[in-house]
Design a protein around this nucleic acid. Sequence first.
RNA 1: GCUCCCAUCGUCUAGUGGCCUAGGACGUGGCCCUCUCAAGGCCAAAACACGGGUUCGACUCCCGUUGGGAGCGCCA
Length: 468
Amino acid sequence: MSGIRTRFAPSPTGYLHIGGARTALFNWAYARRHGGHFVLRIEDTDRERSTEASEIAVLEGLRWLGIDWDEGPFRQSERAGRHAEVVEALIAAGRAYRCVCSKEELEERKQRTIAAGDKWTYDGRCRDANHAADCGPHVVRLRMPAEGHIGFEDLVFGPSGQDAREIGDAIIRRSDGVPLYHLAVVVDDADMEISHVIRGADHLNNTPLQLAIYDAMGAKPPIFAHVPLIVSAGGKKLSKRMDDVSVQSYREQGYLPEAVTNWLVRLGWSHGDQEVFSRDEIRELFSLDSVGRGGAQADPDKLAWLDQHYIKALPREALMKLLTPFLEQVAGVSVTPPPGLEQLVDLLRERSKTLIEMAQGARFALVDTVEYEEKAAAKFLKPGSDALLQDLHDALAAIDDWNEKNLETAIHAVRERHELGMGKVAQPIRVAITGTTVSPGIFETLAALGKDRTLARMAAAVGFVRGG
RNA sequence: GCUCCCAUCGUCUAGUGGCCUAGGACGUGGCCCUCUCAAGGCCAAAACACGGGUUCGACUCCCGUUGGGAGCGCCA
């Protein structure tokens, strides 16, 4: 083993969104690339907002994307004892202290400081008071060095850091005894021997504080790599409320997981001019050196393009399996695939951006009777067209061996007899059998539909024209 | 407000001082193909935020300006 250990540590307070998914993907890819371990840890210390449903959704999202983990999922809440132990040890070692300043007092002093034109960090009133455990309601604060710079080398952003005095004595344990996030992550990452922390750039400013905690604990800090945030169309940080960005919603819209991972990995990372990356290529080629520093907007059009690419390449059997739920969805009932459906699906692959789109394109083959789109019928099944349709019906009825070649011969014969262009013949047939003006090539489509159903629909169209 | 960060076509990006009259991809427009819709092929429009330096030479280095973002919680 390489000793490289990465982790993804989502808080289960909603669905897995694309920003988190990309962070997970990067961590996973980095671990795989270097033969390391990828650890999953659920950060559920915020009991108010964490839910089990959300945790399940996050795990399902990761599995769907093909992101597998080697250890976990661990729950941060289960490690409360360990966190408490570390805080006590820090106090005992003089690296942290109890603070009895109330929120109200603090707020007042803060306002006064700001009003005076100074900037606020904790003023250190309790710093050397040496409050004992029985001092009443209190928080625990980290004793920060009074001066000096806490610097580190970020694998993406390069030399980074902050002056210790800018940070101040941060709270590491709340008055209810629950440790804060910064303490918990550091303890967990240290205990789990995480070697590389790859996370969103919104944590760049938190890193010096966390480094101070590592130092206080006497633990060796990991290497950090902050990846730029995925921003919404407006350029702002993604918001779960404002932007529909859950991985689940892409799944429901009929996108393939390969397309989504390919899309996400190219947001902030590149490998020369290459655009298409299979999951295997991601794990073989991913490198933090090639991660950019600017925020990236996710482009839905590019996802659609990638999805079509992967749909085209998907083996037939796998495609049918994935498509089935969507077929049932558009047909409204559970369907037994009609003969010729696989043939039709092959025709549809080149013209579908998502599985839903493909299912919609196959809908006409799933239903018993087609309903004509109003405009389509008005244009191609208008009064007087019954003679042509009847002729076509009869010519098709005469075909013994129902294949593309024979269909083409038969239809062309009728076309020539009526002295019409192909468009004048194909479109009425298309509307008759699909109800719409759009479908794959007419001969292939008829071949896939089958003789019986084609004839029934042609006859129905004749009846429609004659009956008004 | 304070601290930190970022800045190449509409979007994702290549580019690490001369290879750049800045490359690729998505999207957009046009043409070809054509029974519709796609797919495919060809072509096109489209960017180094601005101003100073440094240098023989800057997209690339430095400074400033502008613009954008993040962090400053007894949230994670």
